[in-house]
Amino acid sequence: MPERPRIRLVPLAASLAVFALVLRAVHALPDTATGLSAEMTAGAKASGIKNVVTAVLLDFRGYDTLLEIAVLMLATIAVLSLRTDPDALSRRISGVAGPVLGALTRAYVPIMIVVAGHLVWIGSSGPGGAFQGGAVLGAAGILLALSGFARPRWSSGAPMRWVLAVGLLTFIAVALLPLALGGTLLQYPDESRKSLVLLVEILLTLSIGASLTSLFLASASDTSEGERR
């Protein structure tokens, strides 16, 4: 018998109190923003990366992003650590479920890969970048798996672990490179700043895509509904 939903008074009161406090705090904000956006925009112009979001993510606050990539990889590994059989879902779905699904997937996935590449490329000057490209790539991976296409051998085991880690490892290598040139961590040399950022973004896209696909596939239940008692 399903448990009846109960209203818990203490958490409810606490949430309402925090909500009221935040409302009061937001109301008290001055009309003019005092943030760092002016400095950031000027800095981005000087650094040659026109998209200020990319400049903030990969350059000014590249250290945050480096650790955020670690968060994403860690989350994937955390989910994998709960599995007894990390490939349960792909084994359960076998064979493409019909001609329409197969044809559409065959048509869409190459387009999605091109879109992902495009998003990374335009990231230096406009909206786009590794996270957006990786999200499209991850969706392509999930589409392939759910439509029942057989997984290639490299998509599990040691080769897949490499794909998951290559983005972070490249980012670390690029972050450490300036140390040999007399700079601090992540202090890209001016002349190669753009190409280093692009290199990091391309490999991050691969790892982010692989992470998102793995997260989805690994969080599927070990047993299908029919097999449960």
């Binding site: 350059d59 000014f60 961590l185 992540l186 202090q187």
Partner: peptide, 13 residues
């Protein structure tokens, strides 16, 4: 202090 990226606070970390 160690200035990551050479930017220095408040812009950098």
């Amino acid at each position: 202090r160690y200035r990551i990226g050479g930017w220095g606070a408040p812009m950098g970390i």
